[in-house]
């Protein structure tokens, strides 16, 4: 029809070549849907399968008993565990977990691990759980084999780093019944006595910060490392 084919106005003609930029300009005022990853991280789902963590009892002893069930459950053969007996005697290697055995060597190869969570299901003591941490890229294969001191949970309030004796008068089952709430003064005295730098080993007063940095800086250099390298 003749009415529809009206001649465009002078202004419309003038701005027609750059009209498309209007879309670009208007976009600047719209809500941003893109995840600005390195600056603002969108939280994962709470049960996201991220990096593993080796948990501790409330007094700082390790929950891992070195049973290797996680290694047997692993479909990708990513986990290496080597158990050893706790040794409470004088001059022994010390006690790392309540009960008989502990995980002396614990390694997870993150270039094999498929984050399926079968190791978590297999763990009888809930020693192994998963965090939501996922930034694992590295430039060589060897550094992506995480060792025990990297995987151990950071010390929370009231925890003492292993090795140290169990709470007096309690046995292994009491640890799993929640009768241990924090390290006792006797345990602190033992750690102070057997440690060259006592202020280094004592539990931090603040809240534990989750992340790899805390794990590596706070745990490295104590007897666990020596035991692993032995």
């Amino acid at each position: 029809m003749a009415d529809d084919k009206k001649k465009p106005s002078f202004l419309a003609d003038l701005f027609a070549p750059v009209g498309g930029f209007g879309v670009t300009f208007a976009t600047m005022f719209r809500k941003l849907e893109t995840e600005e990853y390195p600056e603002e991280k969108r939280p994962t789902q709470p049960r996201y399968h991220g990096r593993h963590q080796l948990n501790r009892h409330a007094d700082g002893l390790e929950k891992c008993v070195g049973c290797e069930l996680c290694a047997w459950a692993c479909p990708a053969d990513a986990i290496l565990v080597e158990g050893a007996s706790n040794d409470d005697s004088d001059g022994g290697t010390g006690r790392f977990s309540p009960g008989e055995r502990y995980g002396r060597v614990y390694q997870i190869n993150y270039l094999r691990c498929i984050f399926c969570g079968l190791c978590i299901e297999a763990c009888p003591t809930r020693a192994l759980t998963m965090t939501n941490f996922y930034e694992l890229a590295d430039n060589n294969r060897a550094d992506l084999i995480f060792t025990k001191e990297q995987l151990l949970a950071p010390l929370a309030e009231g925890m003492l780093p292993a090795p140290h004796p169990m709470v007096e008068g309690l046995e292994e089952r009491d640890y799993y019944q929640g009768k241990v709430v924090r390290a006792t003064p006797e345990q602190e005295a033992w750690v102070t006595e057997h440690d060259a730098q006592p202020e280094d080993g004592l539990a931090p007063s603040g809240d534990p910060v989750e992340g790899v940095d805390t794990v590596t800086t706070r745990q490295v250099g104590r007897d666990t490392t020596e035991a692993v390298r032995r």
């Binding site: 969108r42 994962t44 993150y110 270039l111 691990c113 984050f115 399926c116 694992l136 890229a137 060589n140």
Partner: peptide, 10 residues
């Protein structure tokens, strides 16, 4: 090297 099976976009 990037671990994960598969790695999430982040």
């Amino acid at each position: 090297y990037l671990p994960g099976c598969p790695p999430r976009p982040e």
